[in-house]
């Protein structure tokens, strides 16, 4: 009872500390906007932003844009993660696959993700498919890399236990390699979640304008509606933050066996 109370108090303290700086920034923003420190056309005051948010959410396209971006993000993330998991495991357990595919993969991962956009655009066009391919690629690389490293680090001693218990190759992968790699895989998936979101925005900026938060921001820029631009940026940040928090929570739960 007491410890629960203490825990809830430290959580409250942590949240309060975490909120201090953002709240201060908002106050400065508001003061600067009203006090004539900056041109409100460049930095609209908060209430205008809130008004825009309300208007866009109720009668505008905000919710549709948000849904489009999230759908693109999650579909690309799912494809990239599944492929990365399979690819990383294959390279980790098969010497032949490592020799055949390893060099190409290790060279390709050095290429900045954004540099793929021209290639993907040419191969897959500028429409939805290309965007999802790009997001999937951004998610694939960290998952494949971390899975590979995690599988490699599996304990030889435990593999020997598996051999003594007559585990099949598949059982060794499923019962030993993948659980051993779980912490690394989750790190990779966590990174993939963040990269996929960044890639979603990048795809919306650099490929054909379509529904999405990126499109919303571009529209705001073109019409010189900074409140729309700021709204888009705030939403991008909030979604990224929420995804990161969700990933951290899932990771902590999946790795309970490691203890504190």
């Amino acid at each position: 009872m007491l410890s629960e109370f203490a825990m809830s108090r430290t959580t409250a303290t942590r949240i309060r500390r975490g909120l201090t700086l953002p709240v201060l920034l908002l106050i400065v923003w508001e003061a600067a906007s009203h006090g004539g420190l900056v041109d409100p056309r460049f930095l609209p005051p908060l209430e205008r932003l809130a008004g825009t948010a309300w208007r866009e959410a109720t009668e505008g396209r905000l919710l549709g844009d948000l849904a489009a971006s999230l759908a693109r993000d999650l579909v690309g993330f799912a494809i990239g993660t599944v492929l990365g998991l399979g690819f990383g495991t294959l390279l980790g357990v098969s010497r032949g696959a490592e020799r055949l595919l390893g060099p190409i993969f290790h060279a390709a991962k050095q290429v900045a993700v954004l540099a793929w956009i021209p290639i993907i655009s040419v191969w897959f066009g500028f429409a939805e498919t290309a965007k999802i391919v790009f997001v999937a690629l951004a998610a694939f690389i960290p998952v494949a890399l971390n899975t590979l490293e995690g599988v490699r680090s599996a304990s030889v001693q435990l593999v020997e236990v598996g051999r003594a218990l007559r585990f099949s190759r598949w059982q060794i992968v499923r019962r030993i390699f993948l659980p051993s790699a779980a912490p690394a895989i989750l790190t990779g998936v966590h990174l993939a979640l963040i990269y996929a979101w960044l890639a979603t925005v990048a795809a919306e900026y650099f490929m054909t304008v379509g529904p999405g938060i990126g499109g919303l921001i571009i529209a705001g820029r073109e019409r010189f509606q900074m409140d729309l631009v700021m709204l888009g940026v705030v939403i991008l940040g909030c979604v990224g933050f929420a995804l990161n928090q969700a990933a951290t929570a899932i990771e902590a739960r999946a790795l309970r066996w490691r203890g504190a």
């Binding site: 001693q157 435990l158 020997e160 236990v161 007559r166 659980p179 779980a182």
Partner: peptide, 25 residues
Amino acid sequence: GLVFQEPRLFPWLTVEANVALGLEN
């Protein structure tokens, strides 16, 4: 049956699940 110098338990499995590994096949 084989017992090593180190317990070599699977750290992500409970005691019960570790013992059950012996019956996997």
